[in-house]
Amino acid sequence: MPELSVPELENIANKLRLHVVEMTYAASSGHPGGSLSSAELLSVLYFRAMRHDPSDPSMPDRDRFVLSKGHAAPILYSALAESGYFPKEDLLGLRKMGSKLQGHPVRGTVPGVEMSTGSLGQGLSMACGIALAGKMDGKAYRTFCLLGDGELQSGQNWEAAMFAHQYGLSSLIAFVDRNRLQITGNTEDAVGLDPLPEKWRAFGWNVQIIDGHNVRQIIDAIDKASRSRKSPSVIIMNTVKGKGVSFMENNAGFHGRACKPDEFEQAVKELKEAIQ
């Protein structure tokens, strides 16, 4: 596959956003806010950075992706469908009885979903296990893990962070979707995470801080993290929850609800205008 350009990846990110809005609207539920904030990342991962083959989801040397913030399942499903793991029409089955697209990702039922997630705070541990297996077997694959910022309030993440450092899991690259909103409201008003970069550094990780909606910065950060030979890397992506739809941006209300009909029309209009 030829390497896609920055504008092409930006365009794909908006296509993924449109899927998210459409599928959650069809489901009348789901989590659009945290899906939209990670659209650029999923675009870069599935359309440029990751070594993977949609026609062979269990390819032994594939790069792995673990969606720790499992409620962002719509953006993962969109990226998988858009890259060819399954037909795009299936996306509208999200959350419906009989669909393989469960409300939160399930390993084994959706091609390309590596681990079952949805209960927060567990994905980084799973990613550690995958990365460790690769290290034991002398494999070159990378393990990517997307964390929500709110879920970093859960202590298991920090157990995993200590472990990854101890075992020198340099092929492990975590992302924090730092959109600063959780259901309650601002993360810093719940149980604050700042200073977040210092926390990760203290746990022995390479830390980069980027604009999570800047495709160029995401590409460069992944390239840099991939060159690490000693330590695990974390890329803290400053993002906007609900990014790409004006009335959803920075609106915690859209953490866990779909658009109403009039909102849907507006969201689709805005996203279609953004897509080339």
Partner: peptide, 24 residues
């Protein structure tokens, strides 16, 4: 092939799951 996780049972299970998903 021995993995010491420290006093962190929740992390141990996640790591075990990741290892198992990778063929162990």
């Amino acid at each position: 092939r021995f993995v010491e996780v420290g006093i962190a049972e929740q992390n141990m299970i996640g790591i075990a799951a990741g290892l198992a998903a990778s063929g162990k």
